[in-house]
Design a protein around this nucleic acid. Structure first.
Lengths: 244, 244
DNA sequence: ATGTAGACAAGTATAGGACAAGTGCGCCAG
DNA sequence: CTGGCGCACTTGTCCTATACTTGTCTACAT
């Protein structure tokens, strides 16, 4: 047994919810039904459901049942899956609208810090989910790798596939800020409303940084979920650090 | 024999783990299984596993099993340590100022969902770094565990130490919002300025949720860092999900 | 010092069951 | 048509039992 049974069931339910099988606030099958379909005891099914409840994906009412906590389409993006893959599973459009595609001789300071002083390709795009904008993404990539890419390439495929070299580790930084006028307009939210900002430095397998990306999400639409398999020795959220 | 048997086994297990045979928090074969496959006694297998435990590669729980401790997210989060330890390393003071300490007969709905309907202890505090506030923290804890705690206890020690039962996993949700008037005043920031909000459900080793906590940080002071040891198959930040 | 073999205690996961309490719905008496 | 009752079904909470796991110990061989 590689995993506990209730975790397998929780994973499967999470996946099924992600595929929209249980719609907006709809009821899930009863514990008895799930127990039968998974061929597991009710205790085990309950443990799986309770874990999903801890994650905020479902709620329950005695005598009534278990139901998806929020809108299924958005709910679909469970746990550590990626948004595009989840949307694809839903058959929903996850369109990448390219806003800007240009080579910069002198990148911003932060990008130079990571990628070095050379020229870079900067691509700015708007990610759409189900017809609505949900992220403004900017990607910086060294000239060397970006030179062979076309605007059409970038619109069609994820960036990482186009680079053509194996990726290694990445460092992801999550912060918050007030929306700039520009981002607010693109995302259809009021200026200065809160946004989540995720900066990511992706490195090649050999360790050299090859991509810097910044994702801006409306705060009311998005949140990050991190599973910690053993609780940290502190009440403070893990991974947090003070900046500047 | 140039090497001891248990060192050979430890080396082999280390190699197998390095090849990803036991990924992220997955269970290893039981001591009995390993004993059979390596044709060694259980004691010897244990010595090998204990060596790996000393190296931080695996953990174990009685009655459950051995599992790989190499979850990239958790590892990096753990490595970063807590804010308090960072402050201590910088020679800065950190203080916990208790704002409120009371028992609630009927907790908020979200807390009831996780902890159950019973009464809870709610502690609200202001975390200070170098004399400046940097977090408003609210912790909910079942009456059962909170009954023996005093206000002084909570001010002195981290909550997790006071509960006195071993902690298991946790689920951490990171989002952003505009600061409420109350939080803004406590943190010394303008109302509606962006804040990072981290909700955390901490479970005991046996899986029962025992703590719900909410941390509110000023966005300009704080960010989360997540290390991914192998880049995800998407440009989208890992762990993100859309909500409501 | 290292390894083998075995026995026992303590903890975990799961199955299966019983019962209480809450919900929704149809039926029936009025 | 309406109100109330009962029935079927649901979750919430307990219990026992079993199989399996790690933790710990003793005895013995190399």
């Amino acid at each position: 047994m590689r995993q506990t049974r209730y975790q397998q069931i929780a994973d499967d339910l999470r996946r099924r919810m992600g595929e929209g099988e249980f719609g907006a606030g709809r009821l899930l099958p009863s514990e008895a039904d799930l127990s039968a379909t998974y061929d597991a005891s009710r205790v085990t099914v309950r443990r799986a459901l309770e874990q999903l409840r801890d994650e905020g994906l479902v709620s329950s009412r005695q005598g009534f049942g278990w139901f998806a906590a929020t809108d299924p389409v958005r709910q679909s993006l469970g746990r550590l899956g990626t948004i595009e893959s989840q949307l694809a599973a839903d058959g929903l459009s996850s369109e990448r609208r390219i806003l800007d595609f240009r080579f910069l001789a002198t990148p911003p300071a932060r990008v130079r810090e990571v990628l070095g002083p050379g020229p870079v390709l900067r691509v700015r795009r708007l990610n759409m989910a189900d017809g609505h904008p949900f992220a403004v993404v900017t990607v910086w990539c060294p000239d060397q790798y970006g030179a062979e890419l076309s605007r059409a390439d970038v619109a069609r495929s994820p960036f990482y596939e186009l680079i053509g070299i194996p990726l290694g580790s990445a460092t992801q930084t999550i912060g918050a800020a007030a929306a700039s006028a520009h981002d607010a307009e693109l995302l259809g939210i009021p200026e200065h409303s809160p946004v989540l900002i995720c900066e990511r430095v992706t490195r090649a397998a050999h360790g050299e940084p090859i991509l810097v990306s910044e994702h801006v999400f409306p705060a009311h639409l998005t949140e990050f979920v991190v599973e910690l398999t053993h609780a940290d020795a502190s009440m403070a959220p893990s991974g947090l650090r003070l900046v500047e």
